[in-house]
Design a binder for these strands. Structure first.
Lengths: 211, 211, 211, 211
DNA sequence: TATGAATGAGAATTCATTCAT
DNA sequence: CATGAATGAATTCTCATTCAT
């Protein structure tokens, strides 16, 4: 495998992003990717072990960038409440920005035991943990309720955003704008659906509620 | 008779559920399904147009049952708050009960443009709308904040549960028990993460907050 | 194999004639024939050994009738010249009358080693010999040239008529009417293409021509 | 390079000729052809769209050569009578020379609606027209009777030769030698079967004869 | 006799991957 | 490093035929 600094490496990654998004991983032919990258079929195998590896690399490269970006965005906010809101907004903007990539993550990456089962998706876990850490931070600061289980909350929050993305990716037109969706979703998690605090009931997942 | 009253129809559906969950849709061979169903390869094609059709039928049959069950469960609760909690619990229990099926919906059904793009998944939308209706009901009763957009909230809530299921489906052992997870997730949505109402900030997605 | 007096036997033969003509032997499904004959798939096998046997029976039944008819027509003429003309006319009329059958003989029966090689087509040879006998008769009467080799002439004459039929069968509309075509073709064979007898050259296939 | 300049293209054509002649088009497996051509199965599909396309290409390539050869042979003769004789001889010699090819044209090419119905066999029509032109030429020179309809005569003549070929192709041994058969058949068409001109009757296909 | 659901052998075609140039 | 022609394993689907009813 040749060094990934070669511009061909990224040309192939980008071509694959397009082709996978258009046809789906299984229906995408390696020769399609080669054509899109203006490269010979065989050349692909100088940079990637096989077709699966393209998808994995594609994902890793992309997540690297996404992760860096998200870390920077979050660190700009001091308030954990703002951090949560910023996370939601940044995540949804990302989807908007890179529809093809979003589509692959949403649809293709979930498809094969190769990726969601055997492949330990470290980068994705790191991404999830960004949320987890915000929540823990909020709990340590006494701002978030201490009964919240960060391991569950981080998945719930990510899942909420993710499902919203899927909706956008799969439907042609966007019904709600990004800012609205981001504010709504972070709003649900921060303040709940209930109208006033009097109704605040037994604390989630804990026998003896809040203190 | 080559209709779905034949027990062969369901034998094939069940066999396919196992095989798809084990190998993934694309790596599952029709002959694998036939073998699992104790049926000849050709027999499959008396009941299904092609391999894709098996996955679709499988999904539709399952969703029919899931939907009925969920409707019954929810109708047992009067309080919208309880309905939300019941939804979460029922959904997660379902996953637990039918791991293979869950895996297919989580992993396989998302994979192909056939299913997530071309295929208008009516049953799934009905399922989502069960949540939407609860939220609207809550708003009409003045219990849920009126700024909540049900079309976003239903997806966020489903996504949160769904991501939790994925976590379980893809990891071998369950870290949190079902009741805890259900109570946590519905708790986030109902009461928010924030510790007390004073912190209740600007209302989600609305410029001029509550009141 | 059940007795061929059953009306089902002929229902199947007739259905097969239609289906073979429409789709061709190889693309015709046994179930198509069954449907056309309003008979169950399995019933076909009570009357015919297999799909090949349908085609053969079809041909034999048809040739039996064709042969009888042609013998009768020819015996009505005394003059060998008239017999030749009658043969041509009757043959072409037959094609017109039974397009489906003609199509099968023209196209399908020629197709498979099963039929044109392995299958000794006795009925067809009898049909050819009707021509051969007319020619010999003509030679014995001193009307046809004795250098004519009946074994070649009968094939040439049949081939001429047959190619004309093929033209009709394969083109949708008939360019020439039957009587014209019959008279032309028998005319070529009886009188030749040449304008006058002076041009009559060395006799065909014989070193030292006539006389 | 995947064009017909590659020797693989012709290796496959030649292999297919053998295999089709031996087994028949429908019973010939693509893998048989590949084996005969010493080529991988998949390679066939670099040169031909599918199995049908092999048969068509095979036919077109052969007809191209046959046509050129026949045109050359005919142009060597000045006399239309000689041209007719030359056509017959050349046609029959060709069959002798390339038995496999002849068998395919005789037997296989007639089999499928693909070829005799849908496929407009231009090259074959050109071949037929070579005869048609000779006849018209003869008529213009006043040598052939003007009542002859070239569109019918060309088919009759071709059919006569073709049926003779079929006889040879399908029977293992040749009963008559080529020169004899060619002279006989062209003799029938030129001079007719009748012994002397006195017997020359009403002109073919025309009410008021040659007068 | 008649049925038609079930069978399973069989074949065309695709496409990831290799390797000689 | 790059190419792209060649490979051949792999898999869906078809359909003639059977046989239990």
């Amino acid at each position: 495998m040749k060094n990934r600094n070669s511009n061909k490496y990224f040309r192939i990654i980008n071509a694959a992003t397009k082709v996978f998004a258009r046809k789906g991983f299984f229906h995408a032919k390696v020769s399609d990717i080669a054509k899109e990258a203006h490269v010979a079929d065989g050349t692909i195998y100088l940079y990637f072990q096989n077709k699966d590896a393209i998808l994995i690399s594609l994902f890793e490269e992309q997540m690297k960038a996404v992760l860096q970006n998200m870390e920077r965005q979050i660190s700009e906010e001091k308030d954990v409440t703002k951090k949560i809101e910023k996370f939601a907004l940044t995540h949804l903007k990302l989807i908007e920005l890179n529809k093809n990539m979003a589509e692959i993550i949403q649809v293709e990456l979930r498809q094969s035991s190769k990726f969601m089962k055997e492949y330990r998706n470290e980068k994705f876990l790191e991404y999830l943990n960004l949320i987890g850490k915000i929540i823990e931070e909020g709990q340590n600061q006494g701002i978030f309720r201490k009964e919240i289980i960060p391991g569950i909350a981080k998945r719930a929050f990510f899942g909420a955003l993710d499902e919203m993305s899927r909706f956008w990716v799969l439907s042609s037109r966007k019904k709600y704008d990004i800012e609205t969706a981001a504010r709504q979703i972070s709003g649900y998690f921060l303040y709940g659906l209930l109208r006033n605090s009097l109704e605040r009931g037994p604390v989630a997942g804990v026998k003896n509620p809040q203190e």
